[in-house]
Simulated assay, not measured.
Amino acid sequence: MDIKQIQELIKFVSRSGVNEVAIEQKDFKITIKTNQAPTVITTTVPAVAPQVLPAAPAAQPVATTASDSAPAAATEDTSKYITIKSPMIGTFYRSSSPDKPSFANVGDEVSPGKIICIIEAMKLFNEIESEVSGRIVKVLVDNASPVEYDQPLFLVEPM
């Protein structure tokens, strides 16, 4: 790789929003890291209207009442959490290999710089670090499943 190719790669990385890219060839290795922090946005999940199947008419009001209060409570609870979102498209992994423990589980405390998962993109395994301090309350993605850019991965209760 010559200097012009490296400069173009740096420009591409800065425009793409990726935080880190590593390229390794026979006699050449380069890692480009940006100072951009992943975007962390707090969102509220809107309540979903419950679907009532045609059954006994007497059971419908009870089911509807219980369902109406549950989504409202869930909406209130998630508003105080920070959502950690995927900084890239790829495959989400909770651990470095199947026989290793997960980087982050529900109840674990995280701090800025702590690795919380890996996202594989184009045969590169990108370690995703937490940008917030808090306690993980929910993992929103299944292990080894594809994720999109800006897809919520974790809910974190700030500390």
Rank of each mutant, 00 (worst) to 15 (best):
D99A: 12
P61Q: 08
P146D: 02
K123A: 05
K11Y: 07
A22Y: 04
S95C: 06
I30K: 00
G113I: 03
F154Q: 03
S145E: 13
D68W: 07
Y93S: 01
K85S: 11
P158L: 11
E157V: 00
L153S: 05
R15E: 14
V139H: 01
F103K: 01
S95M: 00
D68T: 11
Q51K: 14
A63M: 14
P54R: 11
I82L: 14
T64M: 15
T34F: 10
V137M: 12
V21K: 07
Y93C: 01
V18I: 13
P71M: 11
T91W: 01
A22K: 06
L53G: 07
T75R: 15
K29L: 11
S102R: 13
D68L: 07
E76P: 04
L155H: 07
V141T: 06
G113E: 04
I116N: 04
P46Q: 15
Q36M: 09
K4M: 08
P87L: 11
E157S: 03
V137N: 09
M1P: 07
Q36D: 09
V62W: 06
K26G: 10
S69Q: 14
S95E: 00
P158N: 05
A121K: 01
S111F: 08
A55K: 14
Y81C: 01
K33T: 13
T43P: 02
P61I: 03
Q60H: 15
T31E: 10
A73M: 10
E20Q: 14
D2F: 00
A49V: 10
G90A: 06
A56H: 13
I128P: 09
E157A: 12
A72H: 09
K100Y: 09
Q25K: 08
Q7M: 11
D77C: 03
V132P: 09
Q60I: 14
A74L: 15
C117W: 00
I128G: 06
D108K: 03
S16K: 04
S145C: 09
K123I: 12
V156R: 02
V13M: 01
I30V: 15
E20V: 04
M122R: 06
A37M: 07
V147R: 00
I118R: 10
S79Q: 14
S95T: 08
F92W: 01
K100A: 15
E127C: 03
T91K: 08
G134N: 05
T43F: 13
I32L: 15
V137D: 03
A104I: 04
E131Q: 14
D142V: 00
F154R: 06
F125P: 02
I84R: 01
K4E: 13
D142Q: 10
A73V: 06
I6S: 02
K80A: 08
A74T: 11
V156S: 01
G90D: 02
I10L: 05
I116K: 05
E109C: 04
D142F: 00
V48E: 15
A22H: 07
A56R: 13
D77N: 06
V52L: 15
V132K: 07
S130H: 01
S97V: 04
